[in-house]
């Protein structure tokens, strides 16, 4: 794909103070009772249950998949999560375990989490993951090239990986913790969407800070502007550091206020998280029973 004139060349700059003020206003909303329960269940249905440790084993991945299908059977009406997110070598195990369910398998790719490899290797890895059965690919951008101003390189790389994905959905991880400014976050979002991303994602979860609300707002606004310009709806996935139900609901508020109802579903919005699911479950059970819960009574993934 040829890099022609891209809209990202004139990405707007971001008013950081304005973004932070808007976030602090939105996070003061009080969400209670039925609305809270609805939000908790919605958040759970949007979780990409993730295990990305070097010590992962097929056994651990199987356990995670079973948790994805049966989050907490003791209470009826609890939704399954949206997807499980694993390394490419674990895709086959995950796919087999999840057979018959609607849960997607996402694989991180392109030398995750650093992205420090050749394009050939990255494309090879992506094809491997797709062949193993991955429904979604989470790629990382080359932050070094981006920060050096080689935007065309980043663009071309995303486009090439998108091509290698075939039918699989592509999520592009910007690793916002390494991009230093909100202006860069906006620019990287625009590049990723122009290059063919189906989702844009904040972080790998390996770098601090990971997802934050201000960064998410900037990315959501980029998605909104892209939609107005092209009519294409791009999804959003904040990942890393979202461990509590309360925080997850705040993300949903920001999502609803920025992109509206059309994005309030697992097809358009995901949470990348490993411990969030259990906190959501504890809050859901608390809403049912009226009693504060203990992690001792919930399965570890």
């Amino acid at each position: 794909m040829k890099a022609t004139k891209h809209a990202f060349m004139d990405s707007p700059s971001i008013d950081q103070v304005g973004v932070e003020e808007r976030i602090s206003r939105l996070t003061k909303r009080s969400i209670k009772k039925e609305s809270k329960l609805t939000a908790l269940k919605m958040a759970l249905s949007m979780v990409d249950l993730t295990t990305l440790d070097a010590k992962d084993t097929p056994g651990k991945v199987r356990q995670l998949c079973i948790k994805a299908m049966h989050p907490h059977d003791a209470v009826p009406g609890i939704p399954q999560v949206a997807a499980v997110c694993v390394y490419p070598t674990m895709v086959r195990v995950a796919k087999e375990t999840l057979k018959g369910s609607k849960i997607q398998v996402a694989a991180v790719s392109t030398a995750f989490p650093s992205g420090m490899s050749t394009r050939k290797v990255k494309i090879e890895e992506t094809r491997y993951a797709v062949n193993e059965g991955a429904d979604e690919i989470d790629m990382v951008i080359s932050r070094g090239h981006f920060l050096q101003g080689e935007y065309n390189y980043v663009f071309d790389e995303i486009a090439a990986v998108k091509e290698a994905c075939g039918a699989a959905h592509l999520k592009v991880i910007l690793e916002t913790g390494e991009l230093s400014t909100l202006d860069n976050v906006r620019l990287a979002s625009d590049i990723a969407m122009q290059a063919g991303a189906d989702f844009i994602k904040t972080s790998t979860g390996k770098i601090q800070p990971a997802a934050t609300l201000p960064v998410t707002l900037v990315m959501l606004e980029a998605i909104r502007d892209f939609y107005y310009e092209t009519g294409k709806k791009i999804g959003m996935k904040p990942a890393g550091g979202i461990a509590t139900a309360k925080l997850a609901i705040q993300y949903l508020v920001v999502l609803r206020e920025t992109l509206g109802e059309d994005w309030l579903n697992p097809k358009m919005f995901r949470f990348g998280a490993s411990t969030l699911a259990n906190d959501l479950l504890m809050q859901i059970v608390k809403e049912h029973s009226g009693v504060y819960q203990s992690i001792d009574y919930f399965s570890k993934d």
Binding site: Y292, S294, I295, D296
Partner: peptide, 8 residues
């Protein structure tokens, strides 16, 4: 009641 029913 909260002091006595908290599961944790």
């Amino acid at each position: 009641s909260h002091f006595s029913n908290h599961m944790d």
